[in-house]
Design a protein around this nucleic acid. Structure first.
Lengths: 168, 168
DNA sequence: TTAAACTTTCAATAAATTTTGAAAGTTTAA
DNA sequence: TTAAACTTTCAAAATTTATTGAAAGTTTAA
């Protein structure tokens, strides 16, 4: 396979994976492009490489910066802004985990905490089933939350070392 | 909060969470409804409870069965099909992990394996960066894959016991 | 100041995804 | 068989989500 073809496939695959996991396809593709490009790129170059509009490129880059996956860079004597991605996969994984935890897991846990407090007739199967399911899911969510928190604080080598120790 | 209101909120939240993670909102809502309902429901009852069409209910239930989250049940002397959800959260988590691994992670690892094999000029920064990123992501994906595999085989108590041991 | 170079915004448009509902298909009991 | 009870299908419609591009905004250098 040619490098050019391989790059294309990587960008497509990353975009597809993103969209399957609730991340805008274009955003994932821009991220993929920056991941495999050694030097920072301008908005113009990104528009060109992915055939997207200026508005789209601009908003997507803003989002990626918001996710902590991409940073701006200025070159001395130039007006243009350059963008580059952190290429450390551990940082990427942590950053994504951190953002999604904050945006999605935290609010759900907050609601589940409330829902477990709902009172009802313990003899009523409808109440019992509701309460049981909500309580169980709440426990699972909190376990996930704790695991993520540890992961966010951890060093990569320590984290995988520990995982491997358990999982043989 | 009233039980009825709490049920509604749970169904909404589960639907939102699903859509944020690439799972059809209605599918997540039907699943939520079945999770908090003690007895199996008919298509008719699900249509009614969630205000969705017959076609939608039918397809969604088929999908949920395909995901291994819902099962059909027949009642003696009745023509209608009844549906119910496995209410064990550990089973749910495992089932979702299993399906998404098969549908999404496996194909990505397969492609990454190919992309790491692409040859190029080791002096070329474009090649070096591409190769490095792809190799790193491949390693991460394989670690995730291994961890999921262990999780799929594991018993719930053993799994969380081990996780907690590591993460204090 | 001015004007060129560049970035951001957002209403309109396009694309993708989801839902509907009526028709076709299937199963069962008599 | 038949017909009622029930399930499935799928083209069209509705909804949601993403993208465009031109206009407005900002920054910089002279």
């Amino acid at each position: 396979m040619e490098l050019a073809e391989a790059k294309q496939k990587f960008i497509e695959a990353w975009g597809k994976l993103g969209s399957e996991w609730g991340i805008n396809r274009t955003m994932a593709q821009v991220h993929a492009l920056l991941l495999i490009t050694p030097d920072p790129l301008t908005t113009e170059e990104i528009m060109e490489a992915l055939s997207i509009s200026r508005g789209n490129a601009n908003m997507t880059l803003r989002d990626l910066i918001g996710w902590g996956l991409v940073e701006k860079q200025h070159k001395a004597g130039e007006r243009k802004e350059y963008f580059f991605a952190d290429k450390n996969t551990w940082n990427i994984a942590r950053q994504v985990a951190k953002e999604r935890r904050k945006r999605e897991l935290d609010p759900v846990i907050k609601l589940l905490d409330e829902l477990t407090k709902v009172q009802g007739d313990t003899k009523d199967p409808a109440y019992k089933t509701f309460n049981q399911s909500v309580t169980d899911i709440n426990k699972l969510a909190k376990n996930v939350d704790k695991t993520l928190e540890t992961m966010l604080k951890a060093e990569e080598s320590w984290f995988w070392g520990s995982i491997i120790k358990i999982f043989k």
